[in-house]
Write a protein that binds this DNA or RNA. Structure first.
Lengths: 146, 146
DNA sequence: TATTGTTATACTCTATAACTATA
DNA sequence: TATAGTTATAGAGTATAACAATA
């Protein structure tokens, strides 16, 4: 139960984004903890499921993290037998990351857990406003890429 | 220049808040760096200016940080001679944090730097949408407090 | 020479525990 | 005993540098 945000800070985007992100992250961590998943591991699973097998390098780029950070994320998923590292025959330096059947089931449970957490977090906003918020964030992220 | 956010992640609030916060933070750090201010130091200055002298404990609560973290923040502001630690005569354990004249000038320059950074960051959104975004974040933060 | 995955290392941010001086 | 500020320490989270295997 953090303090109410002081008026002196409530008009700047920085503290607003910071506190919202922190509050949401806390909920996400708690929602995924029973599955032994972190938000990054869950994100990796979603990307691999949506786009098919890829190298760790490419996965890291997709997630916007360093390739050294991706090692721990994939380690976590492999320990859970949600993902397999298979040598890419076309480039034997690289791993092709494959989602297992177990990974697919884990992903489904993760989706459900995160959907609940997100609904709870966004509940104070009417649905139209929820979508508007996401749209606004997408626009800001896209514009800040260059 | 980070990767475009993958469709698999773009529909969840976590990655959106995370990337938006990170992008905005980068801009804020760069904007404040010439003043030798961090975002937290700037925030402390704004709170002290708006609410008047207070203890480090209370400042930390206002900023939503631990009191041990506040030590470094106030150290930074004191080095810049923007804030003075004065013993509170009513409770000699506590410091009363006073903004100096120099601190007031620094705050003004910080406001200007952050205003520019924020305008640049928010520019992709029409003004009405910018205010809507902040309103939405305030509502989510307020609701997640309890 | 360059790149993939990996390890070792370091840096940032923040918190917990223990100390001191007051209350 | 409890609290304000401080220090020492530890834990996330993430990055940089260097290395082995492969291209």
């Amino acid at each position: 139960m953090p303090d109410r945000i002081p008026p002196a800070l409530a008009d700047h985007l920085g503290p607003l984004l910071g506190r919202a992100h922190e509050a949401h992250r806390r909920l996400s961590l708690a929602a995924l903890a029973p599955l032994e998943l972190t938000p990054k591991g869950f994100g990796a699973l979603r990307v691999l499921d949506a786009e098919g097998p890829m190298s760790q390098r490419r996965l890291a780029e997709r997630q916007g993290i360093d390739r050294t950070t991706a090692v721990a994320v994939v380690d976590q998923l492999e320990r859970l037998r949600a993902v397999e590292r298979r040598r890419d025959p076309a480039d034997r330096r690289a791993h092709a990351l494959h989602v297992t059947a177990r990974g697919t089931r884990l992903l489904a449970r993760g989706r459900s857990a995160i959907a609940s957490a997100e609904q709870a977090f966004m509940a104070p906003l009417p649905e139209a406003e929820q979508e508007r918020l996401k749209q606004a964030l997408r626009a800001l992220i896209e514009a800040s890429r260059g």
